[in-house]
Design a binder for these strands. Sequence first.
DNA 1: AATGAATGAGTTTTCATTCAT
DNA 2: AATGAATGAAAACTCATTCAT
Lengths: 199, 199, 199, 199
Amino acid sequence: MTVPTTERGARTRAALVAAGRTVFERDGFTDSRIADITREAGCATGSFYTWFASKSELLSVVLYEAQRDVVVPRLDATAADPFVTLTEGHRRYFENYQRNARLMLVLEEVAAVDPAFRELRRRRGEALARRTATTIEKMQGDGLADPALDPYATARALDGMVSHLAYYAFVLGDTFDIDALVETTDRIWRNALSPRHQT
Amino acid sequence: MTVPTTERGARTRAALVAAGRTVFERDGFTDSRIADITREAGCATGSFYTWFASKSELLSVVLYEAQRDVVVPRLDATAADPFVTLTEGHRRYFENYQRNARLMLVLEEVAAVDPAFRELRRRRGEALARRTATTIEKMQGDGLADPALDPYATARALDGMVSHLAYYAFVLGDTFDIDALVETTDRIWRNALSPRHQT
Amino acid sequence: MTVPTTERGARTRAALVAAGRTVFERDGFTDSRIADITREAGCATGSFYTWFASKSELLSVVLYEAQRDVVVPRLDATAADPFVTLTEGHRRYFENYQRNARLMLVLEEVAAVDPAFRELRRRRGEALARRTATTIEKMQGDGLADPALDPYATARALDGMVSHLAYYAFVLGDTFDIDALVETTDRIWRNALSPRHQT
Amino acid sequence: MTVPTTERGARTRAALVAAGRTVFERDGFTDSRIADITREAGCATGSFYTWFASKSELLSVVLYEAQRDVVVPRLDATAADPFVTLTEGHRRYFENYQRNARLMLVLEEVAAVDPAFRELRRRRGEALARRTATTIEKMQGDGLADPALDPYATARALDGMVSHLAYYAFVLGDTFDIDALVETTDRIWRNALSPRHQT
DNA sequence: AATGAATGAGTTTTCATTCAT
DNA sequence: AATGAATGAAAACTCATTCAT
C-alpha cells in the first residue's frame, strides 16, 4: 500500500483502484486476475506491485473507498418519535446496498475465505449493534421500548434482519422494491421494540 | 455423481463424501485440493473422478447430506399459542447451525462464487418464507397477527434475522449462547407479529 | 489377440471389433477411449483386455477386417485392351474408398504416428506396385506400353495418383463424383502408358 | 500467437519455434510434450504460454515458416516446351520434400486428427490444382494438350501423383533417388498431357 | 469370461510474483 | 516508476491398464 509521491504515480494508483473495483465486481475476487486488472487500468503487470503488495491489499482499498459513503441507519432516542430518522436511514442503506451489490458479494466471498476479513466484519457488526443497543437502553429507560428485550441481542437481530433483506433483494435478486423493504423494516422495528400491553 | 453398483464402490464413494466434508470444513472450498480429499479418504486421486465430476459436485453432495437433518422452525397457526412450536424450532435450528457452522461458511463461500449455488439458496429462502407467510396470513385472519404486515416480506425479514444471528454467533464467533439467542428471537417474533393496540 | 473358445467369448470379441470400428471412425484413433469402445460394445472395461492387448491391436484387427473386401485395380496384359479391367477396378476402388473413408483417415493417422503401421503401408504399396510393374513390363514387351518408362516407378506413380485422388475426394471432401474420377484416372493411365509416336 | 515487443521476447519466441520444429520432427505432434519444447528452447514451461496458446498454434507457426521456401512445380504454357520448367520444378519439389520429410509426416498426422488442418490442406491442394488446370486449358487451346482431358481433374491427379511419390520415397523410405523420381514424373506428365494420335 | 472399480503416472495450463531493463 | 517478459510451483484431470471378485 505504497503512497504515491509523483502526479504520475497517483494517476496509476488511482487507475488500478478503479480497475480493481470494475474487475472484482465483474469476476469476483478469486476469479479475477492481476493481469485483468492491469489491462483494465491500462498499465503493465509489473506496475501493480509498485502500489500494492497483493490482490488482497487492493481489495481492502477498494472496499474501504466504497464504504466511505455508507450511511448506517440509527434510532434517535431524543426525538419525539425515535423511529423517524430510522426510516430514512433504512432507505438510504438499501439504496446504497443496491448500488454496491456486486461489491457486497465480493465482500461475502472474502469474508468466507479470509479470517482477517471475517474479523473485520464481526467488529463492524459489533460496533454498529453496540450503538443501537445504547439507544434501545435509553428508550427502555424512557418507557419507549419493551423492557424485556436484551438491548444488544435485539440490536444485533434487527441489524441483521436489515442486511439480510438487502442481500436477498439485491444480491440474490429477489424482486421487491425499496419502498416495500423500507416499510416492512420500519414496521417490524417498531413492533419489535415498542412496549407490549398484553404479553 | 455416478452411483456405485458394488459394495466396494459404495464404500469408496462414502469415504470420499466423508473426507470431503472434513477437508472442506478444515480448508474451505477454494483452498481445498482434490488430492487432500483422496488422501483423507484413503484412495487414489483418480478414484475421485470415478464418482464425482468435480470438486463442486462433491460439495453439492456433502451439503445435501448435511441439510437432510436440518429442522426449519415453523409457526403453528392452529395452536392456542402459535409461537410455542416456534421457540423449540429456533432452538433446534441454532443447535444445528452450530454443529454445521464450518460447513455454513463453505456454503457462504460457494454462494458468493457460484451463481448456481446462489440460485439454490434463493429458492430455499423463498420456499421457507412462503410457508411462514401463509401462516402469518392465517394468523392475521384469526386476529393473531398485525394486519398491517405484508406477510411475505415479514416472513423474509424474520427468517433472515434468525439465520443472520446464527451466522454472527457461530461463524463469526460472537459469544452469546443459544438460550439467549432463542429468547431474543422468540420475543422479537412475538412483538413483531402480534397486533398492536396503539399505532 | 486372444482367440475365443466359447460362443459367449466370440460374441463379446465381435462386439468389440464392431464397436472399435464405430468409435475409431467417429473419434479417430488418438482421441478414442477404451471406455468408449466397451460402452459401445456393451461390455465392461476390463473385458477389453480379455481379447486385445491394446488399442493398437484392436485397430489392427478392425483395419484387417475392413481391407478384406478391398479390390485392387489391375491391368490385364493378356486382354486385347489391357485397360478394360482397369476401368472397372478403379471404379470399385473408389467406391470402396468412399465407403471406408473415415477408416482411411484413421489409417493415415496411425501411419503418421506408428512406424509399424508405416512399414505395413510401405509393404502393401510396394507389393501392389510390383504387380502392376510386372504387367507394364509385359505390355512393353508386347509393344503396348511406352518402353521408356521405368515399370516399377511408373506403377508407383500411377497407383499413388489413384489413392491420392481418393483421399482428396472422399476424405477431404472434394466434390467430383466417381464417374469423373474413373474417367480421368482411366484416361491418364492410358495416355501415360501408351507408346508415343512423337517424343 | 502473441507478437513480441522487446528484443528479449523475440529471442524467446524464436527459440520456441526452432525448438518446436526439432521436437516435432523427433517425436511427432501427439507424442511431443510442451515441457520437451521449452527444455529444448531453454526457457521455463510457463514462457511457452506467453507466446502460444497451445501446441497446435506453435505447430501452425512451424509449418508456416517451413512452407515459406517451398517451390511448387509449374508448367509454362508460353514456353516452346511447356515441360522444361516443370522438370526443374519437380526436382526442387522433391529436394525440398526430402529436407522436410519429418515435418511432412507431422503434417500428415495433424491433418488426420484435426479438421482445421485438413481444410487447410484441401485449400492448398485446390489452389495449386486450379493453377495447373489453367495452364492445361491454355495448352489444350494451343493444341499442346489432349483435349479429352478434364483440366482440373487432371491437374489434381498429376499433382497428387507427385506428392504421393515424395511421401513414399522420403517418408516411408522407398529407395529410389531423386533423379529417377524426376525422370518418371516428367515422362508421365508428358505422356498424360500430350495429345494422342490414336485414341 | 466378465465385471467394474482402483490406480497413479503423466500433462497441460494457470498465474501470482519477481526481475532485468 | 513503468514495462513486459520470465518463472515454476501448483492443481485438475485423463485414461490405459491392472486387479479383486
